[in-house]
Nucleic acid binder design. Structure first.
Length: 197
DNA sequence: TGAATGATGCGCT
DNA sequence: GCGCATCATTCAT
């Protein structure tokens, strides 16, 4: 038997303080077994949204139908619809009852490039996954993949033992409140991070 | 290369 | 009705 080099992250990875999980996710691989085939990408940019005291967090004003997954156990997807045309993928963190999640903002294509290009209507991998809306469009993720268990076999994160040499940190992008918190983490050596404003 | 703007629909007040 | 964890396009420099 060859040595197992890729491992699906367990629930215990997600069920930790969000600001510990967020930088740890960089360099891991998001895998989605789509109906059209297996897709994967190397995560290079994320943002943390944490609970009642974070005004930018969807859960800041209590539980609603939309943000319910954030209040559930760690290790589930939270996908929401925004601006009338885009979806964004989050990973729920912290124990049940502590609403928090990590937004996937950018990644580098790995497996299934042709499917991603087709989903996005592009002919080049340039700027394919460098934004939360663009990532979900390329992966074909919608509300149907909301609240899925990341320890199941449909969508999960793999650890391929890759190190990030240059973890950077900044303000979060695209929000009007909570700018004092520098909860955006990204791979400073990657050219695939989002553009910001 | 950067600023401004329109697209587009749902959840929440 | 309003605002939104976005993006592609347009226009100005």
């Amino acid at each position: 038997m060859p040595e197992q080099k890729t491992n699906k992250l367990p629930q215990s990875f997600y069920q930790r303080p969000t600001l510990e999980v967020a930088p740890d996710i960089l360099g891991k691989f998001i895998v989605y077994k789509a109906p059209s085939g297996r897709l994967s990408a190397r995560i290079v940019e994320v943002e943390a949204y944490i609970g009642h005291n974070d005004p930018a967090c969807h859960a800041a004003r209590g539980m609603t139908k939309r943000n319910r997954p954030m209040f559930g156990p760690a290790g589930f997807t939270y996908i929401y619809f925004i601006y009338g045309m885009y979806h964004c993928l989050n990973f729920v963190t912290e124990p049940e009852g502590s609403p928090a999640a990590i937004l996937l903002r950018a990644a580098e294509p790995d497996e299934g490039l042709e499917i991603m290009l087709r989903n996005s209507g592009k002919d080049s991998p340039r700027n394919l996954l460098n934004g939360p809306g663009k990532f979900c469009r390329a992966f074909g993720l919608t509300a149907e993949q909301n609240d899925l268990d990341l320890t199941d076999d449909v969508i999960y994160i793999e650890d391929r033992q890759e190190m990030i040499r240059n973890v950077q940190r900044s303000q979060r992008i695209g929000i009007k409140v909570g700018q004092d918190r520098r909860w955006r983490f990204y791979d400073g050596d990657s050219t695939a991070v989002s553009k910001g404003r």
